[in-house]
């Protein structure tokens, strides 16, 4: 993987394969704690679930349950010291319906909420969260932009940047 670009509130990382994408997720996961929200945006097959698997690993979620796509169940919950709430809004076409998800309990709960297709709830996110954008072309390579919203996440971006340079 390679750090392509950085600024005060974002970094762009290039990964060569799904394993590296997972690795980047793991770095982020290691910095996350209760109540944190990560919004993932990228088209089908761009690496969102793969990245989430990395976050789970970084959080220390035990591996007895594989981190699989939550498309069918909408929310998968993984217990742990810091639990993971893995959302997938792919099947929700009407963004207003997200109000019905009971999202408040999850977003401000004792775990980390990772939201695939997070653009559908952009208007519901608090001031502080982490935005991750996935760009893909015609092969396994991905460009991943990780952007911090609010002080806590800008600090995390700084740590990630340092981590990747070392």
């Amino acid at each position: 993987m390679e750090l392509l670009a950085e600024d005060s509130d974002f970094i762009i990382v290039k990964t060569d394969n799904p394993e590296e994408t997972e690795e980047v997720g793991k770095f982020l996961g290691m910095h996350l704690g209760p109540g944190d929200i990560v919004s993932l945006i990228g088209e089908l097959g761009s690496g969102k679930t793969c990245f989430t698997r990395g976050i789970a690993c970084g959080l220390g979620i035990e591996e007895s349950l594989p981190i699989v796509s939550p498309t069918f169940t909408l929310i998968n919950e993984y217990p742990g010291k810091t639990p993971l709430f893995h959302f997938d809004l792919y099947r929700l076409d009407d963004s207003e319906r997200v109000f019905d998800l009971g999202y408040r309990e999850y977003f401000h709960g004792k775990g980390v909420a990772v939201i695939e297709w997070g653009e559908k709830v952009a208007h519901l996110l608090p001031d502080e969260y982490c935005l991750v954008l996935f760009f893909s072309e015609f092969d396994e390579r991905r460009e991943i932009k990780i952007k911090g919203q609010g002080k806590r996440f800008i600090d995390i971006i700084k740590s990630l940047s340092k981590f990747l340079k070392d």
Partner: peptide, 9 residues
Amino acid sequence: NYGGVVPEL
């Protein structure tokens, strides 16, 4: 009508 399953519904 909602393009998928809506949990609360």
